[in-house]
Amino acid sequence: MDQRLSFVTLAVPDLEAARRFYLDGLGWEAALDVPGEVGMIKVADRVVLSLWSEAGFEAEVGPIRRGDGAIPLTLAHNVATTEEADAVLVAAREAGAADVRLGVARDWGGYSGYFTDPGGFCWEVAVNPGPIGQEVLP
């Protein structure tokens, strides 16, 4: 098996709210948009973020497990500077992110903040000064 990731699929409770957040709010462009079913956004070379209605997800994958607390997953958007990170976090807030935690210097030497999309998925916006952090920048 090749070492790669092709799709990240988020089962969202309200596909239209997710669409408004990512497409209208953040200004991302859909590669595929099937109202009420799925939206796909090319987020990197050969990587797609798929927003799938919970009903469609459960029909194919199985029941969604629910419970208190944060979903044990973060998606990350890395940028080169703290100013860029702050600007992304402000844009997420303006797009309707429910929970925005502003960027702060981290013990690991970087800088990061978080926002939560309408489906409850947490995004980290980070400046990672290490080699792996630099490798993921455009």
Rank of each mutant, 00 (worst) to 15 (best):
D45S: 13
R46Q: 14
G39C: 15
W52H: 14
E58V: 01
E58Q: 14
K42Y: 02
I41K: 05
L51P: 02
A44E: 07
L49G: 01
R46D: 14
W52N: 13
V61C: 09
L32K: 10
F57T: 01
S53I: 07
S53N: 03
V38H: 12
S53T: 12
E58P: 02
L51N: 09
F57N: 03
G56M: 02
A59M: 05
G62K: 00
A44M: 05
D33F: 04
L32M: 14
A59E: 09
G56T: 01
G62R: 00
F57L: 00
E37I: 09
D45Q: 11
V47L: 12
V47A: 12
W52D: 10
W52F: 13
R46S: 11
R46L: 11
G39R: 14
P35K: 07
G39K: 12
S53D: 12
E37M: 07
D45R: 14
D45K: 15
A55Q: 12
G39Y: 08
S50I: 09
L51D: 04
A59F: 05
V61L: 03
V38I: 15
A59Y: 00
G39H: 15
L32P: 01
M40A: 12
E60K: 10
V61A: 08
E60I: 01
A55F: 00
G36M: 08
E37C: 05
I41F: 07
W52R: 10
R46P: 01
G56W: 00
G36Q: 07
G36D: 11
I41H: 05
V43M: 05
S50F: 03
G62Y: 00
S50N: 14
